[in-house]
Design a protein around this nucleic acid. Structure first.
Length: 798
DNA sequence: CGTCTTTGTCATACA
DNA sequence: AGTGTATGACAAAGA
């Protein structure tokens, strides 16, 4: 089936990933959420692959201009300057995309069976270890892959796990309890999240990993997986358990640990919850899965956010999961020491947000507290507390949960510890009353215990980090400290919000700038290169034409030369006017003229560029005068002269003034008695230029000078263009940065929204679980006790 | 007087 | 090979 295929496809991605995904998918399917694995794989695979396997290509250069385009792409080299931002953006973007696939289905629970295991083994249907919730992808995956993580509880090995396994085999087998090697019990616990969620989480985390997260995680998971598949020997189990424990301790993520059991037949470590599912349940998970699959074929693309949001909007905002996030996720980033700090931070922020949200919702929280009290094992509570007790009315048709579920054969694990956390007070109450779960089908309220289960389930997904607060997870590991204390979380969240707000501000502020820049750039978009080149030739030509005629007549006048100077002073202007060679050229406007010369319109809009708009007036005067060469004045002086000096210059002899104002080349040309203007020299096309030279019989020295003047003149323009381009580039980069920042802010907001939606979904699922459990009956038709329900829920969720 | 900016120029590489 | 362009570096002029 699809699952099998998926599994195969994803092998190279890392087993843990596959397992986790599959497990989630299955759980989701059970819940009624449609998961589109194919879409996921196709769309997300590349990125995931790259993340996991490493970037396929690294660019040595950061292509700033392409950053935006490549945001969703993967072309930027990890070491590029903007990596930080890039990855963040990309990650967020991926998240958003992933969420798109989420879809809130009409929830349907066909069958859940839990059966009390005579041996006291806890059997969980889809289990999520109440406790074990993967915090980060890597870890989550690991957890999935590693049953040991759940091993903490040592439940009896007897329980057989039934997972609706993703394994191909499982498909065919209906209720069969037979444990398959493929079963990924541990992970299954986390399946409550929709595949989308999982995807999202995975993506995010993988990106984190990409950013620097150690590969160890992956390796670890893979190793575990291998060991699992191989039916690890008991010793290995222990080893793994130890490793895992150490790992969790280090990370504090363990929050959710699945109780692992050893499969009696295979000897595999199986999460207790999962293990419990099994054999004895009247309805096997596999069967349920099959039914679900039939009902919800994979491949359909779920529409997520909108739907979910809408559906959920109606539902109560879940009970605040107690201190913690809803779901402790095994996948939490923290699990990986090497994870990128930024990602962790962001994730933490997200988590914090969730927590806050949860905190706000008080309604169902009471639950958790009660549960914690009831729980025999404090360690387990974390999960309970975390779980948001929310009752939500499922959208639309009441959630179709089969109330017929026969619990006869559900085996309840003996792990009382775990149970408590999972059962919500409500459930407990119900149980104590021994009344069949009277929960209205439509309204499903999950007990805190359920929440914990859910949490664990969700935890499997990468989202867990977002949803679950660390504290919840500590099923067996009460000692483990929640990775993020609430205060810290709050701070983090605030920081995140601040960041967002700042970003927004930046956006708005930057926006004007950016827009201005863009506008300016757009205006002179072609200016980059063409601006000067295009313009200068054209405008000069006009001047030249006018001048050329004059030049011939004026050639004798020494004055004309002055006017030729690129930066004519007032005196020059006067002189020119006197001569009439320059016509309307006004020295006073020299500055203005310089700017206008290049078509000021191109720069006016862009203040930053204004200074760039140098005008190469050096030709202008010449052309205007048309008769440069006349006097061989000393060329010592620099071409330009300040306006201040102009008045003084005006007092000077005209020639002196002209010389002072003339550019070096102009002076040289005059000195050499070049018969035409520098403007012509510089701007005439090669052919015309050659003709001009041919027309005037020039000496070698004159020819050399003319060629140098032409070369320098062109180079000057080139330099100006070059500078302008540089400036444009800088401006573009700035604009790009602003744009990226805006995108980041937007994505962060979206992320927050998605997280909320996911949380709501989770709550919904919890409600479903609770409802189902409430209706469970043992062989004698009696409702299960709270503890039993907790166990069941734990197992199932796991 | 020192610093920064602007501009021109040179040298060099490339097309 | 000649021409034009691009660009880093340098220096002069000016603010």
């Amino acid at each position: 089936m699809g699952i099998l295929i998926i599994v195969k496809e994803m092998l190279y991605l890392k087993k843990y990933f596959t397992e986790g995904l599959i497990q989630f998918t299955i759980l989701l399917s059970l819940i009624g959420v449609q998961v589109d694995v194919d879409t996921y794989l196709s769309s997300q695979l590349p990125p995931l692959r790259e993340i996991i396997l490493g970037p396929s290509s690294a660019y040595t250069q950061t292509q700033f201009h392409n950053l935006r385009n490549t945001l969703d792409g993967y072309g930027i080299h990890p070491k590029s300057v903007d990596l930080d931002y890039f990855f963040t953006s990309r990650r967020l973007l991926s998240q958003v995309r992933s969420l798109d696939r989420l879809r809130v289905p009409s929830t349907q629970l066909d069958a859940w069976l839990v059966h009390r295991d005579p041996e006291g083994v806890v059997v969980s249907a889809a289990g999520q270890p109440g406790p074990s919730i993967a915090l980060d992808n890597g870890s989550g995956l690991e957890d999935v892959g590693n049953p040991e993580s759940s091993a903490m509880r040592g439940g009896g090995g007897g329980g057989t796990v039934h997972e609706a396994s993703y394994s191909p085999d499982s498909e065919d087998s209906l209720g069969a309890v037979a444990p398959s090697d493929d079963q990924e019990q541990p992970g299954s616990g986390n399946d409550n999240l929709t595949k989308e969620d999982i995807d999202l989480i995975d993506i995010l985390w993988r990106q984190d990993i990409d950013l620097g997260a150690g590969r160890e995680v992956f390796d670890y998971s893979s190793r575990q997986k291998e060991s699992e598949t191989e039916k690890q020997p008991p010793e290995e189990k222990e080893d793994r358990a130890e490793r895992e424990e150490s790992w969790r301790n280090g990370l504090n993520l363990q929050g959710v640990q699945a109780c692992t059991q050893v499969d009696g037949e295979t000897g595999e470590n199986i999460p207790e919850q999962l293990a419990s599912l099994g054999a004895q349940t009247s309805v096997s998970l596999q069967e349920c899965l099959r039914l679900l699959e039939a009902t919800f074929p994979f491949g359909e693309e779920p529409e997520f956010p909108a739907t979910v949001t809408q559906e959920l909007s109606g539902s109560s905002e879940e009970g605040p999961s107690t201190s913690q996030g809803l779901i402790p996720s095994p996948l939490l980033p923290q699990s990986e020491p090497s994870l990128d700090l930024e990602q962790q931070w962001q994730d933490i922020m997200a988590i914090m947000e969730l927590q806050d949200m949860e905190v706000n919702s008080d309604a169902d929280n009471s639950f958790l507290e009660r549960n914690s009290d009831s729980s025999s094992t404090g360690s387990n509570h974390s999960g309970v507390e975390a779980g948001p007790m929310v009752s939500f009315s499922l959208s639309g048709p009441t959630t179709p949960i089969n109330q017929d579920v026969s619990l006869h054969q559900a085996s309840l694990p003996s792990c009382s510890q775990d149970l408590r956390p999972f059962f919500s007070p409500d459930l407990e109450n119900c149980i104590s009353m021994e009344t069949p779960g009277p929960n209205p089908p439509t309204l499903l309220s999950l007990s805190s215990s359920n929440s914990s289960n859910l949490n664990s389930t969700f935890g499997a997904t990468n989202l867990t980090g977002l949803f679950l607060p660390p504290p919840l997870n500590g099923t067996s590991n009460g000692t483990l400290v929640p990775a993020l204390p609430d205060p810290l979380n709050i701070l983090l969240e605030e920081a995140m919000l601040d960041e967002i707000s700042l970003l927004d501000l930046a956006l708005e502020e930057g926006f004007s700038q950016t827009q201005a820049c863009q506008l300016g750039e757009e205006l002179d978009s072609d200016s980059g290169l063409s601006l000067d080149s295009g313009r200068s030739p054209a405008s000069p030509s006009s001047s030249e034409t006018s001048c050329s005629s004059a030049s011939s007549s004026c050639s004798s006048t020494s004055f004309s030369e002055e006017g030729a100077m690129g930066y004519s002073t007032d005196s020059e202007a006067i002189a020119e006017t006197e001569e009439g060679a320059v016509g309307g050229y006004q020295p006073e406007h020299s500055k203005f003229c310089r700017m206008s010369y290049q078509d000021p319109s191109q720069f006016h809009s862009l203040p930053q560029l204004e200074h760039v708009g140098h005008n190469h007036t050096y030709n202008l005067p010449l052309s205007s005068l048309g008769c440069p060469e006349e006097d061989p004045q000393p060329t010592s002086a620099r071409g330009k002269r300040p306006n201040r000096d102009r008045q003084q210059d005006a007092k000077l002899q005209p020639q002196d003034l002209l010389d002072k104002q003339a550019t070096r080349d102009e002076r040289r040309a005059r000195a050499m008695k070049i018969p035409f203007s520098n403007d012509k020299i510089v701007n005439l096309p090669v052919e015309e230029f050659n003709e001009l030279l041919a027309k005037h019989r020039l000496s070698e020295a004159q020819l050399a000078l003319v060629r140098d003047i032409r070369r320098r003149g062109k180079n000057k323009m080139a330099a100006q263009n070059c500078r302008k381009r540089k400036l444009d580039t800088i401006l573009n980069l700035e604009q790009g940065v602003d744009s990226l920042r805006r995108d980041k802010a937007r994505l962060l907001k979206e992320k927050m929204e998605f997280v909320r939606s996911i949380r709501q979904m989770k709550q919904k699922v919890q409600g479903l679980y609770r409802d189902v459990f409430a209706q469970l009956r043992d062989e004698s038709g009696q409702p299960y006790s709270t503890s039993e329900k907790q166990l069941l829920s734990t197992n199932v969720l796991h």
